[in-house]
Design a protein around this nucleic acid. Sequence first.
DNA 1: CCTACCGATCGGTAGG
DNA 2: CCTACCGATCGGTAGG
Lengths: 210, 210
Amino acid sequence: MTSPTSSPGSPPRDRVTEHLVREAALTLFAQRGYHGTALRDIAAEVGIRTPSLYNHIESKQDLLRGIVLTTTEQVWSDFQAAVAGVNDVRERLRRAVVTYALRHAVHRREALIVNRDVESLEEPARSQVMALRRQHERAVREIIVEGAGAGVFGVSDPFLASFAILEMCVSVARWFDPAGPLSPEQVAAEHGVFALRLVGAPALPGTNRP
Amino acid sequence: MTSPTSSPGSPPRDRVTEHLVREAALTLFAQRGYHGTALRDIAAEVGIRTPSLYNHIESKQDLLRGIVLTTTEQVWSDFQAAVAGVNDVRERLRRAVVTYALRHAVHRREALIVNRDVESLEEPARSQVMALRRQHERAVREIIVEGAGAGVFGVSDPFLASFAILEMCVSVARWFDPAGPLSPEQVAAEHGVFALRLVGAPALPGTNRP
DNA sequence: CCTACCGATCGGTAGG
DNA sequence: CCTACCGATCGGTAGG
């Protein structure tokens, strides 16, 4: 692949791209946190000096905003796709949980940053993110409320149960090891089983392997 | 209460104490993270200037170390006290979970800091903390292994189940609201129920209120 | 407990 | 993409 254009005035294509910079930020923010990462570190990671970063990004805050907003939006669209057209309330809960857990195994860095550094996000992005998160939480809780109302789930407090289930999935990002014995899909499937058990639902066929 | 001693050379007792400083650090580290909190902020919180902090503490790192080490040691001793002399494996798991969840509801700030900023702890404290955490994790996992071996729990992967249960308790620190409708004890008890359901154990008497 | 001050580092800009 | 540099802020010390 060669440089596609060389219109007058535009600099020659360099090796470092915006994507590479955001990728480096993702890794370092996840490891050390937003405030624990210096732009100097990110620059070094991609082999340039700090000021050159500004050819690719607007600011350090811009890096955080991109990661957190994109991830939060994807959580919501993932959820909608997962439960769309599914009528059985057990299966709807299972799919919501499997999707959410899968994301936290596959996109560990993004998840860690969203949960650790959302407080460092400036307004108005922070409020947008919080609203989207609450929307997702409410939607999952409503599945539990519906299942409890129908007598399919035995749950005394849907708030408690939904937080426990959601946060159990979130924590996958903290301990999941891609080099470990289980695939993201296996971990996600097992969390679907855990969630149904937790709400006291009768097991779905084929979900309990001894 | 008056100043108890005034031995020659010792300065008069001031209003600011080491405890007050550590209390302020606890609140601010929990809110903004270790790297997001300046000593200046902590000093302002207790109404003094930054250099005066050093009459009470050794360094910023010393504040973090105190919080994280103490908390981690208490988790371990809590656990030992909770399961001591309990033979039934279901009851042992339930007590371990209730104790752990209760701590995360009552000591929210400490828990948030341990989980967010342990990476900022310098050696050798960091390794000490990690070892203690692994010890606790292993002990909980062994309860699950024992229950599974005895056929009381139906669990395909004790690692997965123990992480899910433990992290569900950890997350209590993130959403628990002391002003909310549930007491720490109620939340903790409910997590005991969740844990037993999650491992597929038959319910203990009186643990399921509709 | 304070003021004065230290070197180091931060995110970011000027200018090429 | 770079060097040179900015003001602000950091944790911490000197000295009283």
